[in-house]
Design a protein around this nucleic acid. Sequence first.
DNA 1: CTAACTTTGTGAAATCACTCACGATTTCTG
DNA 2: CAGAAATCGTGAGTGATTTCACAAAGTTAG
Lengths: 209, 209
Amino acid sequence: MDEETKIPQATAKRLPLYYRFINNLYLQGKMRVSSKELSDAVKVDSATIRRDFSYFGALGKKGYGYNVEHLVQFFRKTLDQDETTEVALIGVGNLGTAFLNYNFMKNNNTKIVVAFDADKKRVGQTIGGVPIEHIDDLEERMGNVSVAILTVPSQAAQGITDRLIGEGVSGILNFTPARITVPANVRVHHIDLSVELQSLAYFLKHYPL
Amino acid sequence: MDEETKIPQATAKRLPLYYRFINNLYLQGKMRVSSKELSDAVKVDSATIRRDFSYFGALGKKGYGYNVEHLVQFFRKTLDQDETTEVALIGVGNLGTAFLNYNFMKNNNTKIVVAFDADKKRVGQTIGGVPIEHIDDLEERMGNVSVAILTVPSQAAQGITDRLIGEGVSGILNFTPARITVPANVRVHHIDLSVELQSLAYFLKHYPL
DNA sequence: CTAACTTTGTGAAATCACTCACGATTTCTG
DNA sequence: CAGAAATCGTGAGTGATTTCACAAAGTTAG
């Protein structure tokens, strides 16, 4: 695209976080905020916050800080908060159920619209307002969602992934321990819970603070 | 704390991932593996894998690759796989329940040994073999676990955190959207599910592959 | 045994991310 | 209104991580 292409990935990952806190401030009626205050709240160095914001131009005012309403509107536009991204969830096990019950729409522009599971007993149920379809009907019932959350057993991950990609999915949030293979134009974010826990344990042992 | 101190954090985060895949190869009876094969499996550049391994000395053999058994034994030692880290889980909601049911012990040296919740109806139950205690009894029933998983409502996050730290917890895996404040000697890993989903959506829109 | 092939380990370069520190500008106080 | 205080935006420095690319060493095949 244009200048946005230059935004560092590390910055882009922080944007939703910034948005959520700024939106909270806005809802609380706060008029202004400094990079220092924001830093205390989101635990990101204040210079980093200023640098991040600066990629979008001069959003603040010297000696004053940032106008909360202005920021919130800016981020809403930048993060496309007005336009909801529809998401499919595959695998209604413990974790999948948790996500369905979780209210993703709170301060959020993403919405799970359909779920799939291999267990026929679950099909036809609704969890958190989301209908559950059978995995065999994936191709018919998926509509044109472009993002999927994968909470299936690892053995099933690659097979399901291939089918999702066949249906045009371009982003996958993968909670399985499997590292899935996808074409270059598909983006995968891995969230590997046991790796997170293990690496936390490793850090505690070997990198005493 | 000798040479290990020099291992880059980025490398340390990948170690549990390497371990899991290498252990799988071992269980499958594979004798040798190259950095290239490993790269295809874990989706990490092969040069990065070689560099990561090299921090621990020369683990491989030129023209041959790595001996799987040797690797697996090496990582088992390095990641303290024989010594289990005991973990407490706070907040037995949807997400917390999912973790309790999840078998963290598979290829893993971490184990949830106790869970806490504010809902008296849940107290006394056992989920996934883990007893649920009342949050008021946190101080008495926690034992000396040093790692906690936080799956409580965000409003409760900071209060619980303070109590955990009072009990000597030094690592927290925080699944709440709240950014908690901790002393410098406590390590927090944030896993913010809605940020992950939003940032994936942002990347899809703004960083077409 | 030799030649062709494979694969590691690593210097060096490139890329990416973070932080310091300060001039410029605005706000605030009395 | 003047001086003090606050705060941004950013140049420049530092640090961390990734990647390239190749010599060295081992393996394999005939």
